[in-house]
Design a protein around this nucleic acid. Structure first.
Length: 291
DNA sequence: TGCAGTGTTGCTTC
DNA sequence: CGAAGCAACACTGC
Protein backbone atom coordinates (compact mmCIF):
# COMPACT_ATOMS: atom_id res chain seq x y z
CA UNK A 1 0.00 0.00 0.00
CA UNK A 2 2.40 2.60 -1.14
CA UNK A 3 1.26 6.05 -0.05
CA UNK A 4 3.35 9.21 -0.30
CA UNK A 5 6.25 8.07 1.93
CA UNK A 6 6.56 4.69 0.25
CA UNK A 7 6.55 6.10 -3.27
CA UNK A 8 9.06 8.71 -2.14
CA UNK A 9 11.32 5.92 -0.86
CA UNK A 10 11.05 4.17 -4.20
CA UNK A 11 11.81 7.42 -6.02
CA UNK A 12 14.90 8.11 -3.93
CA UNK A 13 16.18 4.58 -4.45
CA UNK A 14 15.67 4.77 -8.20
CA UNK A 15 17.36 8.17 -8.43
CA UNK A 16 20.44 6.63 -6.86
CA UNK A 17 20.43 3.47 -8.92
CA UNK A 18 18.96 3.97 -12.36
CA UNK A 19 18.98 7.67 -13.23
CA UNK A 20 20.67 8.11 -16.60
CA UNK A 21 20.28 4.44 -17.55
CA UNK A 22 18.96 3.47 -20.95
CA UNK A 23 16.15 0.95 -21.39
CA UNK A 24 17.45 -1.87 -23.56
CA UNK A 25 14.47 -4.19 -23.50
CA UNK A 26 11.09 -4.76 -21.81
CA UNK A 27 9.87 -8.14 -20.60
CA UNK A 28 6.13 -8.10 -19.90
CA UNK A 29 5.13 -11.09 -17.81
CA UNK A 30 1.67 -9.55 -17.41
CA UNK A 31 1.07 -7.16 -20.28
CA UNK A 32 -2.14 -5.89 -18.68
CA UNK A 33 -0.01 -3.68 -16.45
CA UNK A 34 0.46 -1.29 -19.38
CA UNK A 35 -2.71 0.76 -19.89
CA UNK A 36 -3.92 2.97 -22.70
CA UNK A 37 -1.49 1.77 -25.35
CA UNK A 38 -0.65 -1.55 -27.01
CA UNK A 39 2.35 -3.46 -25.75
CA UNK A 40 3.92 -3.22 -29.18
CA UNK A 41 3.70 0.56 -29.30
CA UNK A 42 4.73 0.80 -25.67
CA UNK A 43 7.93 -1.11 -26.36
CA UNK A 44 8.67 0.93 -29.45
CA UNK A 45 8.36 4.18 -27.52
CA UNK A 46 10.35 3.03 -24.52
CA UNK A 47 13.16 0.83 -25.81
CA UNK A 48 16.46 2.64 -26.38
CA UNK A 49 15.25 5.63 -24.38
CA UNK A 50 17.27 7.07 -21.55
CA UNK A 51 15.76 7.81 -18.11
CA UNK A 52 16.64 11.48 -17.59
CA UNK A 53 14.60 12.32 -14.49
CA UNK A 54 12.64 10.54 -11.76
CA UNK A 55 9.96 12.31 -9.73
CA UNK A 56 6.91 11.67 -7.58
CA UNK A 57 3.50 13.33 -7.57
CA UNK A 58 1.05 12.10 -4.95
CA UNK A 59 1.31 8.34 -5.12
CA UNK A 60 2.49 8.39 -8.75
CA UNK A 61 6.05 7.64 -9.76
CA UNK A 62 7.20 9.53 -12.87
CA UNK A 63 10.06 8.38 -15.10
CA UNK A 64 11.02 10.99 -17.68
CA UNK A 65 12.46 9.64 -20.94
CA UNK A 66 14.73 11.41 -23.40
CA UNK A 67 12.07 11.41 -26.12
CA UNK A 68 9.81 13.71 -24.08
CA UNK A 69 7.55 10.89 -22.93
CA UNK A 70 6.88 10.06 -19.29
CA UNK A 71 6.29 6.66 -17.73
CA UNK A 72 3.67 7.10 -15.04
CA UNK A 73 3.53 4.23 -12.54
CA UNK A 74 0.79 3.88 -9.96
CA UNK A 75 1.40 1.09 -7.46
CA UNK A 76 -2.15 0.91 -6.13
CA UNK A 77 -2.35 -1.67 -3.33
CA UNK A 78 0.47 -4.15 -3.61
CA UNK A 79 2.82 -2.80 -6.25
CA UNK A 80 6.45 -1.99 -5.67
CA UNK A 81 9.63 -1.53 -7.67
CA UNK A 82 12.71 -3.70 -7.42
CA UNK A 83 16.16 -3.14 -8.86
CA UNK A 84 18.77 -5.83 -9.21
CA UNK A 85 22.30 -4.99 -10.21
CA UNK A 86 23.87 -8.40 -10.19
CA UNK A 87 24.27 -10.68 -13.13
CA UNK A 88 21.25 -12.93 -13.34
CA UNK A 89 18.41 -14.06 -15.50
CA UNK A 90 14.68 -14.46 -15.18
CA UNK A 91 12.91 -17.73 -15.90
CA UNK A 92 9.69 -18.25 -17.88
CA UNK A 93 7.50 -17.68 -14.84
CA UNK A 94 9.25 -14.43 -14.06
CA UNK A 95 11.25 -15.75 -11.13
CA UNK A 96 14.56 -14.08 -10.61
CA UNK A 97 17.49 -16.41 -10.91
CA UNK A 98 21.13 -15.96 -10.11
CA UNK A 99 23.48 -15.36 -7.25
CA UNK A 100 24.09 -12.44 -4.96
CA UNK A 101 20.45 -11.44 -4.92
CA UNK A 102 18.77 -9.91 -1.94
CA UNK A 103 16.79 -12.62 -0.13
CA UNK A 104 13.58 -10.92 -1.17
CA UNK A 105 14.18 -11.92 -4.76
CA UNK A 106 14.13 -15.51 -3.65
CA UNK A 107 11.00 -15.01 -1.58
CA UNK A 108 7.91 -16.73 -3.04
CA UNK A 109 6.51 -13.26 -3.66
CA UNK A 110 8.84 -12.78 -6.58
CA UNK A 111 6.26 -14.70 -8.57
CA UNK A 112 4.29 -11.44 -8.71
CA UNK A 113 6.74 -9.60 -10.89
CA UNK A 114 4.69 -8.23 -13.80
CA UNK A 115 7.20 -6.35 -15.94
CA UNK A 116 10.96 -6.10 -16.17
CA UNK A 117 12.95 -3.32 -17.78
CA UNK A 118 16.41 -4.40 -18.85
CA UNK A 119 18.76 -1.46 -18.41
CA UNK A 120 22.31 -0.59 -19.30
CA UNK A 121 25.03 -1.62 -16.80
CA UNK A 122 23.28 -4.98 -16.59
CA UNK A 123 20.65 -3.62 -14.23
CA UNK A 124 17.03 -4.65 -14.16
CA UNK A 125 14.03 -2.70 -12.93
CA UNK A 126 11.02 -4.85 -12.06
CA UNK A 127 7.51 -4.02 -10.92
CA UNK A 128 6.04 -6.60 -8.56
CA UNK A 129 2.30 -6.50 -7.91
CA UNK A 130 0.34 -9.32 -6.34
CA UNK A 131 -3.14 -8.04 -7.06
CA UNK A 132 -2.59 -6.67 -10.56
CA UNK A 133 -4.12 -3.28 -9.82
CA UNK A 134 -0.94 -1.32 -10.47
CA UNK A 135 -0.58 0.31 -13.86
CA UNK A 136 1.97 1.92 -16.13
CA UNK A 137 0.92 4.65 -18.55
CA UNK A 138 2.93 6.49 -21.13
CA UNK A 139 2.14 10.19 -21.34
CA UNK A 140 3.31 13.11 -23.40
CA UNK A 141 4.18 16.30 -21.48
CA UNK A 142 0.72 17.69 -22.24
CA UNK A 143 -1.09 14.54 -21.12
CA UNK A 144 0.97 14.48 -17.93
CA UNK A 145 0.08 18.08 -17.15
CA UNK A 146 -3.58 17.37 -17.65
CA UNK A 147 -3.34 14.26 -15.47
CA UNK A 148 -1.53 15.99 -12.61
CA UNK A 149 -3.73 19.07 -12.63
CA UNK A 150 -6.40 17.02 -10.87
CA UNK A 151 -4.19 16.48 -7.84
CA UNK A 152 -4.16 18.55 -4.69
CA UNK A 153 -1.00 20.08 -3.19
CA UNK A 154 1.96 18.03 -1.98
CA UNK A 155 1.76 17.97 1.83
CA UNK A 156 5.54 18.04 2.29
CA UNK A 157 6.16 20.96 -0.07
CA UNK A 158 6.55 24.53 1.12
CA UNK A 159 3.44 25.80 -0.65
CA UNK A 160 1.28 23.51 1.52
CA UNK A 161 0.58 26.24 4.06
CA UNK A 162 -1.94 26.11 6.88
CA UNK A 163 -4.13 28.56 4.97
CA UNK A 164 -4.10 26.39 1.85
CA UNK A 165 -4.90 23.34 3.96
CA UNK A 166 -7.86 24.97 5.71
CA UNK A 167 -9.29 26.37 2.51
CA UNK A 168 -9.29 22.98 0.81
CA UNK A 169 -10.48 20.97 3.81
CA UNK A 170 -13.40 23.21 4.66
CA UNK A 171 -15.00 22.93 1.25
CA UNK A 172 -16.30 19.48 2.13
CA UNK A 173 -18.89 18.32 4.59
CA UNK A 174 -17.85 14.69 4.22
CA UNK A 175 -16.17 12.88 7.14
CA UNK A 176 -12.62 14.18 7.59
CA UNK A 177 -11.24 10.67 7.13
CA UNK A 178 -12.63 10.57 3.62
CA UNK A 179 -11.52 14.09 2.80
CA UNK A 180 -7.91 13.38 3.82
CA UNK A 181 -7.76 10.48 1.40
CA UNK A 182 -9.19 12.50 -1.49
CA UNK A 183 -6.23 13.00 -3.85
CA UNK A 184 -7.88 16.07 -5.35
CA UNK A 185 -7.84 17.82 -1.98
CA UNK A 186 -4.40 16.74 -0.75
CA UNK A 187 -2.12 14.40 -2.73
CA UNK A 188 -0.51 11.27 -1.36
CA UNK A 189 -2.42 10.36 1.80
CA UNK A 190 -4.06 6.93 2.02
CA UNK A 191 -5.66 4.78 4.67
CA UNK A 192 -2.66 4.27 6.94
CA UNK A 193 -1.51 7.85 7.27
CA UNK A 194 -4.99 9.35 7.46
CA UNK A 195 -5.75 7.05 10.41
CA UNK A 196 -2.45 7.91 12.07
CA UNK A 197 -2.71 11.67 11.48
CA UNK A 198 -6.25 11.76 12.89
CA UNK A 199 -5.07 9.92 15.99
CA UNK A 200 -2.15 12.30 16.52
CA UNK A 201 -4.55 15.23 16.19
CA UNK A 202 -7.11 13.54 18.48
CA UNK A 203 -9.89 13.93 15.94
CA UNK A 204 -12.69 11.45 15.38
CA UNK A 205 -12.57 10.23 11.77
CA UNK A 206 -16.33 10.77 11.37
CA UNK A 207 -16.14 14.50 12.16
CA UNK A 208 -17.44 16.51 9.23
CA UNK A 209 -14.55 18.38 7.62
CA UNK A 210 -16.33 21.74 7.64
CA UNK A 211 -17.13 21.39 11.36
CA UNK A 212 -13.53 21.18 12.53
CA UNK A 213 -12.54 23.89 14.96
CA UNK A 214 -9.54 26.12 14.42
CA UNK A 215 -7.55 24.28 17.08
CA UNK A 216 -8.36 20.91 15.53
CA UNK A 217 -7.36 22.14 12.09
CA UNK A 218 -4.04 23.34 13.46
CA UNK A 219 -3.38 20.02 15.14
CA UNK A 220 -4.37 18.05 12.06
CA UNK A 221 -2.20 20.15 9.76
CA UNK A 222 0.79 19.55 12.01
CA UNK A 223 -0.04 15.87 12.44
CA UNK A 224 -0.20 15.20 8.70
CA UNK A 225 3.23 16.66 8.09
CA UNK A 226 4.77 15.00 11.13
CA UNK A 227 3.33 11.56 10.38
CA UNK A 228 4.45 11.67 6.75
CA UNK A 229 7.94 12.86 7.66
CA UNK A 230 8.27 10.23 10.35
CA UNK A 231 7.15 7.49 7.96
CA UNK A 232 9.65 8.72 5.41
CA UNK A 233 12.44 8.63 7.99
CA UNK A 234 11.42 5.07 8.87
CA UNK A 235 11.46 4.00 5.20
CA UNK A 236 7.72 3.45 4.99
CA UNK A 237 5.21 0.94 6.30
CA UNK A 238 5.43 -2.73 5.32
CA UNK A 239 2.33 -4.17 6.96
CA UNK A 240 1.33 -5.75 3.69
CA UNK A 241 4.11 -6.21 1.20
CA UNK A 242 5.74 -2.90 0.59
CA UNK A 243 9.49 -3.16 -0.02
CA UNK A 244 12.10 -0.67 -1.06
CA UNK A 245 13.91 -1.23 -4.33
CA UNK A 246 16.35 -3.60 -2.66
CA UNK A 247 13.52 -5.63 -1.17
CA UNK A 248 13.90 -4.27 2.35
CA UNK A 249 10.95 -3.59 4.63
CA UNK A 250 10.07 -0.25 6.20
CA UNK A 251 9.83 0.25 9.96
CA UNK A 252 6.79 2.45 10.39
CA UNK A 253 4.54 -0.58 11.15
CA UNK A 254 6.20 -0.70 14.54
CA UNK A 255 5.32 2.92 15.31
CA UNK A 256 1.73 3.06 14.15
CA UNK A 257 -0.75 3.87 16.88
CA UNK A 258 -4.11 2.82 15.42
CA UNK A 259 -3.97 1.46 11.89
CA UNK A 260 -4.92 -2.23 11.96
CA UNK A 261 -4.77 -2.32 15.75
CA UNK A 262 -8.46 -3.14 16.25
CA UNK A 263 -9.03 -4.66 19.69
CA UNK A 264 -5.55 -3.72 20.90
CA UNK A 265 -5.06 -1.11 23.58
CA UNK A 266 -4.56 2.59 22.92
CA UNK A 267 -1.02 3.59 23.90
CA UNK A 268 -2.34 6.75 25.55
CA UNK A 269 -5.42 5.68 27.52
CA UNK A 270 -5.58 1.89 27.29
CA UNK A 271 -9.01 1.74 25.70
CA UNK A 272 -9.48 -0.70 22.84
CA UNK A 273 -8.94 0.59 19.31
CA UNK A 274 -12.05 0.34 17.15
CA UNK A 275 -12.54 -0.21 13.47
CA UNK A 276 -15.47 1.30 11.59
CA UNK A 277 -16.41 1.74 7.96
CA UNK A 278 -16.30 5.20 6.43
CA UNK A 279 -17.15 5.46 2.76
CA UNK A 280 -16.55 1.75 2.29
CA UNK A 281 -13.08 1.98 3.83
CA UNK A 282 -11.92 0.84 7.23
CA UNK A 283 -11.00 3.53 9.75
CA UNK A 284 -9.20 2.79 13.00
CA UNK A 285 -9.37 5.06 16.02
CA UNK A 286 -9.42 5.29 19.80
CA UNK A 287 -12.99 6.08 20.93
CA UNK A 288 -11.66 7.78 24.04
CA UNK A 289 -8.83 9.91 22.65
CA UNK A 290 -10.64 10.82 19.42
CA UNK A 291 -14.06 12.15 20.39
C1' DT B 1 -15.08 -24.66 3.33
C1' DG B 2 -16.58 -20.13 2.40
C1' DC B 3 -16.50 -15.60 2.83
C1' DA B 4 -15.08 -11.17 4.80
C1' DG B 5 -11.17 -8.26 4.75
C1' DT B 6 -7.40 -5.98 2.49
C1' DG B 7 -6.64 -0.45 0.06
C1' DT B 8 -6.75 2.71 -4.68
C1' DT B 9 -9.16 4.49 -8.04
C1' DG B 10 -12.54 5.06 -11.55
C1' DC B 11 -16.86 3.98 -13.15
C1' DT B 12 -21.87 3.37 -12.57
C1' DT B 13 -26.01 4.39 -10.20
C1' DC B 14 -29.12 7.07 -7.63
C1' DC C 1 -24.29 18.09 -9.18
C1' DG C 2 -22.54 14.98 -5.30
C1' DA C 3 -22.51 10.85 -2.74
C1' DA C 4 -22.51 5.95 -2.43
C1' DG C 5 -21.46 1.42 -4.03
C1' DC C 6 -18.88 -1.63 -6.55
C1' DA C 7 -15.49 -3.81 -9.73
C1' DA C 8 -10.77 -4.69 -10.99
C1' DC C 9 -7.63 -9.06 -8.55
C1' DA C 10 -5.34 -12.42 -5.50
C1' DC C 11 -4.35 -13.86 -1.28
C1' DT C 12 -4.96 -14.33 4.09
C1' DG C 13 -7.34 -15.38 8.14
C1' DC C 14 -11.20 -16.64 10.75
Amino acid sequence: MPELPEVEIIKKGLLKKILGERILDVNTLFSGIVKGISIGRFKKEVINRKIIDIRRRGKNLLLFLDNGKILVIHFKLTGHALVASSDFEVDKEGRWLGENLHPYFLDPKNQFIRIIFLLTSNKKLAISDLRKFAYIKLFSQKELERFLKEYGPEPLEKDFSFEVFVKRIQKSQAPIKKVLMDQKIIAGIGNIYSDEALFEAKINPLTKANNLEKEQLKNLYKAIIEVLKKALAEKGTSISDFRDIEGKKGNYDLLRKVYQRKGERCFICGRKIERIKIGGRSAHFCPNCQK
